[in-house]
Computed example of a mutant assay.
Amino acid sequence: MVDQTNSSDLQTPEGIVQPRHFPAKGEPLIHQVNWEGLKTLYMKEVRRFFKVQTQTIWAPAITTLLFLVIFTVALGRGGREVLGVNFATFVAPGLIVMGMMQNAFANSSFSFLAGKIQGTIIDYLMPPLSEGELMLALVGASVTRAVLVGLALCAAMLLWPGVDLTVHHPWAVVWFGLCGSVFLALLGLLSSIWAEKFDHNAAVTNFVIAPLSLLSGTFYVIDNLSPAFQAVSRFNPFFYVISGFRFGFLGQSDIGNSNEAVLHSAIGLGVVNALFAFAVYRVLRSGWKLKG
């Protein structure tokens, strides 16, 4: 006797066969957020950089610690104080958040670009993920790497004598650290969409990220600059991230003369990140330089 039961049918414990009802062609199976797909891509990106953690987490910590050693030896002699603390304590928070931002950019700027060059970009575009879910997973993985680098940097800088990383305002440390990481992750994602070879990505790193990082007040307070350069510094978003993050540790900042100025900067960074995220989402949705 031939079994005429369709393999797609369901059979109840009582032996009653019920037909399985599939949605019509073109009707989506996932109606809201594909949480499983988002989690899978996020974990894939995290595992990618974690497999080479010596290069992606610990090496940046050692390199940034060398910055601390060099500038402390060169500029911190004679008990020099900045914002009421010794120079090593002043410069350490800026170096931590600078390392976080640079590694957030490095992580998010790699995925699409490597896919283009290796011909595996379809692995990102074919799965049933919306543009928002794709962006959220890639940015989330980059922020995860930034946080791990920040923790490694904190551990490394505590080894240097004279550094005090006592936290005075935890909300500022968390908020400005995350805002800076998200901003650079979005910039890295936009760079990977635009770039067609690694030279393009390196150009953004060398001519945009590095100058903005080094001229953001990491090693000095902008009050020491001329009024013209102070005005230029205040147009640099990196300045607000680094000064706000430093405020979380020191309780003082060169953003303004009051804590209200720091709070306004925190709100402003949140608005800038929201607008930038929307812009990157629109570029991603358009398929520019991703979909032939």
Results as ranks from 00 to 15, higher is better:
residue 273 N to T: 05
residue 288 W to F: 10
residue 286 S to M: 06
residue 225 L to G: 08
residue 250 L to A: 02
residue 27 E to K: 09
residue 139 V to A: 10
residue 175 W to D: 05
residue 222 I to D: 14
residue 89 T to F: 03
residue 162 G to S: 01
residue 121 I to L: 15
residue 117 I to F: 06
residue 102 Q to A: 15
residue 208 V to I: 15
residue 236 N to F: 10
residue 128 P to E: 08
residue 97 V to F: 04
residue 22 F to H: 12
residue 234 R to S: 06
residue 208 V to S: 11
residue 184 L to K: 03
residue 233 S to F: 08
residue 229 F to H: 11
residue 154 C to P: 00
residue 158 L to N: 13
residue 235 F to K: 02
residue 152 A to N: 08
residue 34 N to K: 08
residue 62 I to V: 14
residue 74 A to E: 02
residue 47 R to F: 14
residue 12 T to R: 14
residue 269 L to A: 05
residue 46 V to N: 06
residue 170 P to Q: 07
residue 31 H to E: 11
residue 19 P to A: 12
residue 111 S to Q: 08
residue 63 T to R: 06
residue 291 K to W: 14
residue 17 V to P: 05
residue 284 L to P: 04
residue 209 I to L: 14
residue 79 G to H: 04
residue 21 H to P: 00
residue 21 H to G: 00
residue 210 A to Q: 09
residue 173 V to I: 12
residue 197 K to S: 09
residue 44 K to C: 04
residue 30 I to P: 01
residue 166 T to S: 15
residue 168 H to M: 10
residue 67 F to D: 07
residue 119 G to H: 10
residue 54 T to Y: 10
residue 122 I to T: 10
residue 30 I to E: 10
residue 283 V to I: 08
residue 18 Q to T: 06
residue 79 G to M: 03
residue 133 E to T: 04
residue 175 W to S: 05
residue 34 N to Q: 06
residue 238 F to K: 09
residue 206 N to K: 07
residue 128 P to S: 03
residue 164 D to T: 04
residue 77 R to I: 11
residue 39 K to Q: 13
residue 190 L to H: 08
residue 287 G to H: 07
residue 210 A to V: 13
residue 209 I to Q: 03
residue 36 E to M: 08
residue 198 F to Y: 14
residue 292 G to R: 06
residue 125 L to M: 14
residue 77 R to Q: 15
residue 72 T to M: 02
residue 262 V to R: 01
residue 98 M to T: 13
residue 199 D to E: 11
residue 163 V to D: 03
residue 63 T to A: 15
residue 66 L to R: 02
residue 266 A to H: 01
residue 70 I to L: 05
residue 4 Q to F: 11
residue 22 F to V: 14
residue 101 M to S: 06
residue 125 L to P: 02
residue 197 K to D: 13
residue 117 I to G: 03
residue 151 L to R: 07
residue 137 A to M: 05
residue 21 H to K: 12
residue 170 P to Y: 02
residue 109 S to H: 01
residue 258 S to I: 07
residue 203 A to V: 12
residue 89 T to N: 00
residue 120 T to V: 10
residue 56 T to R: 03
residue 217 G to N: 04
residue 125 L to T: 13
residue 16 I to F: 05
residue 31 H to R: 14
residue 268 G to T: 03
residue 217 G to W: 02
residue 286 S to H: 09
residue 213 S to F: 00
residue 265 S to D: 07
residue 266 A to Q: 01
residue 215 L to G: 00
residue 41 L to R: 11
residue 20 R to E: 07
residue 158 L to S: 14
residue 174 V to C: 08
residue 167 V to P: 09
residue 194 W to A: 11
residue 226 S to D: 15
residue 85 V to F: 01
residue 53 Q to Y: 14
residue 83 L to G: 10
residue 95 L to N: 01
residue 124 Y to Q: 13
residue 74 A to M: 11
residue 103 N to C: 09
residue 238 F to I: 13
residue 132 G to D: 04
residue 75 L to G: 00
residue 78 G to R: 08
residue 147 V to I: 15
residue 31 H to C: 04
residue 115 G to V: 08
residue 182 V to I: 15
residue 99 G to F: 00
residue 218 T to L: 12
residue 94 G to Y: 08
residue 180 G to E: 04
